[in-house]
Simulated assay, not measured.
Amino acid sequence: MTEGQSAGVPAARLEQLRAGLATVERRIDAACAAAGRPRSEVTLVVVTKTYPASDTRLLASLGVRHVAENRDQDAAPKAADCADLPLIWHFVGQLQTNKARSVVRYAHHVHSVDRSRLVSALSEAVLKAERRELGCLVQVAFDGGTAQGRAGVPPEQVLEMADLIADTPGLRLDGVMTVAPLTGPLTGDPSAAFTRLAEISTAVRASHPAATMVSAGMSGDLEQAIAAGATHVRVGTAVLGARSPLG
């Protein structure tokens, strides 16, 4: 079986993914060069939500090692289908506490920790699963607390949440994450939001030096995120193509 025929996927799809991946890699290279940063400082996390496990397999064959999902009902079976691959799984969506036990079975990092009840649920699930630890990032919200805004912890509460994660059995504080805000004073200015996230990351690392992950930037704003110091960019559409409206 050839690379392009693996899992019954046409060779054309492999070439689509190869082209998308190459384009994104060039963008990351250019952004790192413009920011005066080594390319090795930025990890590409490919967001595979709404796409089949066959695409994840093809991405792995192209050298992708970090993949992300935002819904457990999609991620759990996909991770099981791809359990033989050398992948690092990131959970990046809003997480309900009743999904914690499932998520800890496959996720290496959860980027969307935003409340104490979720911290407790993840800890309990990790300890029951008898796994070593789960990496957690504090999701930071820059929407000003509006109902239409993103999930996340307000900036002034991030240090408290970071301390809680670091002190909770089974959890490891890895860093901070944000998504460019939909409402509030930073709407339409992802650079400002990402710069503020970098400042928050510096404050967190003063107490937790190992919490070095700064997860920010997606297909439309990865350059701004890298310029502000992001260590992980979460890119889906630019690699895999436009998603279904239901995705």
Rank of each mutant, 00 (worst) to 15 (best):
V113E: 01
T48D: 03
L222M: 15
T50F: 07
A125M: 00
V110W: 07
V214E: 02
T231D: 09
A151F: 13
A107E: 04
A19M: 04
V158E: 05
V64D: 00
D74I: 04
P181L: 04
L87W: 13
L95F: 06
A162H: 07
R39T: 13
I226H: 05
T178K: 06
G217I: 12
R132K: 11
V103R: 06
G152C: 02
L44V: 04
E41G: 12
A141F: 01
L17T: 03
K128T: 03
A125G: 00
L137E: 08
R18H: 02
S61C: 00
L171P: 13
R13Y: 00
T178V: 04
T237R: 14
S102T: 13
R115W: 08
T237S: 14
P185W: 11
T195W: 00
Q94W: 00
V42E: 13
F194H: 08
P245K: 06
R71S: 04
A83D: 10
R172S: 14
W89T: 06
D174E: 15
R131N: 04
L14P: 07
D81V: 03
R150H: 14
F91W: 03
E133A: 15
R105Y: 01
P52A: 12
Q148W: 00
F194P: 09
V47C: 06
L134S: 13
D163T: 14
L21Q: 06
L240E: 04
Q96R: 09
A75G: 08
D84V: 03
L137A: 04
C32G: 08
S6P: 00
A79Q: 07
Y51C: 09
C136R: 12
A141K: 00
R18W: 00
G135V: 08
G170D: 05
M213P: 00
V235D: 02
S244H: 14
G20R: 02
A228V: 12
A34F: 10
A180R: 08
H109L: 15
G63D: 09
G20M: 02
L159T: 06
M213E: 14
V235S: 03
M1V: 12
A216L: 05
A166T: 10
M218P: 08
Q73D: 12
L182H: 09
R131L: 09
A53V: 09
A166R: 13
I88D: 11
P77S: 09
W89K: 07
S120H: 11
A216V: 03
A141C: 11
G184W: 01
L59E: 05
T183N: 02
L127R: 15
